[in-house]
Amino acid sequence: MTLVRDLLAQKGNAIWTISCQASIKDALRLMAEKKIGALVVTDVGYVVGVFSERDYARKAISFHDFSVEMTVDQLMTRRVLYCIPEESVDECMAIMTQRNIRHLPVMDEGILVGMISIGDVVKTTLSEMDNRIKDLEDYLWVHMI
């Protein structure tokens, strides 16, 4: 069973954050640069939200005079769902599906230690799936002869 902790060990624990007062333009630029789909939003060191591609796509059209100079806190999601390193990747899959989200910040005793995405989950499950089923099949094969 793969845990979040294992996933972070594989992918790294880089977290990219942005200030709630930064512009949407700066947020998009950082996401493009780091090739990611979401940023944790902070206000003087405290986590205050998450800003994702979905927030941008859904909310840009709700403003009459939308501009990329608007601040992140105007479009971010304030309720931050997170996971802990001891949680299983399977549990995270369930959270992502139920809550319709693609990113989960990882908190360890109140400290932000990483971020996992739906892409990370699929990638790790794909390799795990192949190994596990292949092992079992080899086992069956060996003992059936």
Partner: peptide
């Protein structure tokens, strides 16, 4: 969509592995 993939994984993968494990443990000599 990637969401369809995750939903399928949750429903199906554990079933497949469980089935294999059940099959293996049903053999008395294995």
């Amino acid at each position: 969509s990637i969401r369809d993939v995750i939903k399928w994984l949750i429903a199906d993968r554990s079933f497949e592995i469980q089935e294999l494990e059940r099959f293996v443990s049903s053999k008395p000599h294995v």
